[in-house]
């Protein structure tokens, strides 16, 4: 396997999910990541040390995503405005230079942290994220109320967060976000 393909296989998934934190749809996220890999390919950056390449990849995805967002022309917007605003909230945080867990941690560490979760929590994480099941389906499968599944999922993520982040606090953001009142 060529050096390029190794890098591609090792990083595509993380970079895709990272890009998806900025843009709204899968296609755009794929395009952004593919473009970054074009740079890697054309400039032969795959020969670089991984310790240099890794930050380069995330920074490139972040910069091109922010650039993409900035230059897109919003022609029309309709439906689920609240959802768009929640997304903006997240984007603003990442644009401030705050690092995502995806960027900070390797998959090995994330998997390991999941492994160490209490069984009831691990179960819902595996079923929802890896198997893509709905909360409702998980509830049916485990024969517990949907609320319980939701609570377990939240708790599992909170536990994971704590395990994975030594300094578990984001820089709090100030400034008001537009809040919908009705």
């Amino acid at each position: 396997m060529s050096a390029f393909e190794t890098i591609f296989r090792n990083y595509y998934r993380q970079l895709f999910y990272y890009a998806l934190k900025f843009v709204e749809n899968d296609d755009d996220a794929h395009n952004l990541v593919q473009d970054v890999f074009t740079q890697v390919y054309e400039k032969q950056l795959y020969n670089k040390e991984e310790s240099d390449l890794r930050p380069y990849l995330y920074t490139s995805v972040r910069n091109s995503a922010l650039n993409f967002i900035k230059h897109r022309k919003v022609i029309a917007m309709h439906e689920v405005e609240a959802l768009i605003k929640l997304k903006e909230m997240e984007r603003e945080m990442l644009a401030s230079g705050e690092k995502s867990l995806i960027e900070k941690e390797t998959y090995e560490k994330i998997h390991q942290a999941i492994d160490e979760l209490p069984d009831v929590q691990k179960e819902v994480v595996l079923l929802s994220r890896f198997e893509g099941l709905r909360n409702k389906e998980i509830a049916e499968k485990l024969d517990v109320p949907v609320r319980t599944v939701e609570t377990r999922l939240f708790r599992a993520l909170a536990t994971l967060r704590q395990k994975l982040t030594k300094q578990a606090f984001f820089v709090l953001m100030f400034g008001r976000f537009p809040v919908q009142t009705h």
Binding site: E5, F8, R9, Y12, R13, Q14, F16, Y17, Y18, L20, K21, H30, V33, Q34, M89, E90, M93, S100, L101, I102, E105, Y107, I110, I114, V125, R129, F130, E131, G132, F154, L157, A158, L160, R161, L164, A168, F170
Partner: peptide, 21 residues
Amino acid sequence: LEIKDTWDAIPGGDLSIEKQL
């Protein structure tokens, strides 16, 4: 934001890297 970020960091299932390659 923290909980969402943690969720995002867990790889989802439905993504074929080979297809992307």
